[in-house]
């Protein structure tokens, strides 16, 4: 598990599949090899009013860590991350009388996954309750575990196939954690950050059609 940087790719009057195809072509031209598909999904639950102060739990799954369920509890003042095993999903169902799933908020990012050298690139089209919202590009540099050490290197790599649209500053979530050892839950936090933005934004008025 290495450092992962997640960035949004602007859509600009194109459909999701068009952009994914464009980026797939570019990354393949650099010598990347397709390695299947990936999926990151997020479901959000909020506490019932009877529990007092409202809290929100985001439950996320990442196909990269298939046996793990990630949960992020937002208390309003801070976020408590938790990595658990698969049974956590069943526990949430048991607690449906305290935490209720928000309808129409299931967000997911899925698409092709590529490997190139020690990098892993994932091109995900994001949907919030089946509505296409945008494109997220995930780049993982697997050998390195400290973001500060390899940020410049990943930035150079991303600019290599995203051009000037690549990121120039580290994701806001990572900015305070550049010297820490990176762990899978940090990737999840980045995804949640983007999903929250996508949910708030009206998003492209495009509806994803089944391919």
């Amino acid at each position: 598990m290495g450092v992962t940087i997640l960035t949004q790719f602007p859509v600009e009057n194109k459909t999701g599949p068009q952009i994914i195809e464009l980026l797939s072509k570019r990354i393949s031209a650099l010598g990347a090899v397709p390695q299947g598909q990936f999926l990151v999904d997020c479901e959000t639950y909020s506490s019932v009013p009877a529990l007092g102060h409202q809290r929100t739990v985001h439950v996320l799954h990442n196909s990269e860590q298939p046996a793990t369920v990630f949960a992020l509890l937002e208390t309003g003042t801070k976020t408590i991350p938790l990595a658990t095993d698969g049974l956590f999903d069943l526990l949430m169902m048991k607690m449906s009388s305290f935490y209720q799933s928000k309808k129409q908020t299931k967000a997911e990012s899925k698409g092709p996954r590529f490997e190139i050298g020690d990098f892993c690139v994932k091109l995900g089209s994001v949907t919030v309750s089946s509505n296409f919202k945008g494109v997220l590009v995930e780049v993982e540099y697997k050998p390195c575990v400290v973001p500060a050490m390899c940020w410049d290197l990943i930035m150079e790599f991303m600019q290599g196939f995203l051009g000037s649209l690549g990121p120039t500053t580290p994701p806001s979530f990572l900015q305070n954690r550049m010297q820490d050892i990176y762990s899978p839950i940090d990737t999840i936090q980045q995804y949640l950050e983007h999903f929250t933005l996508f949910r708030k934004s009206p998003g492209p008025a495009l509806i994803m059609r089944p391919q």
């Binding site: 050998p143 390899c150 410049d152 290197l153 790599f157």
Partner: peptide, 18 residues
């Protein structure tokens, strides 16, 4: 290894390697 750019080409990556 990951943070220093190449002395000659001043780039980080060359054939996807630092």
């Amino acid at each position: 290894l990951f943070s220093a750019p190449c002395k000659r080409c001043s780039k980080h990556l060359q054939s996807n390697l630092p």
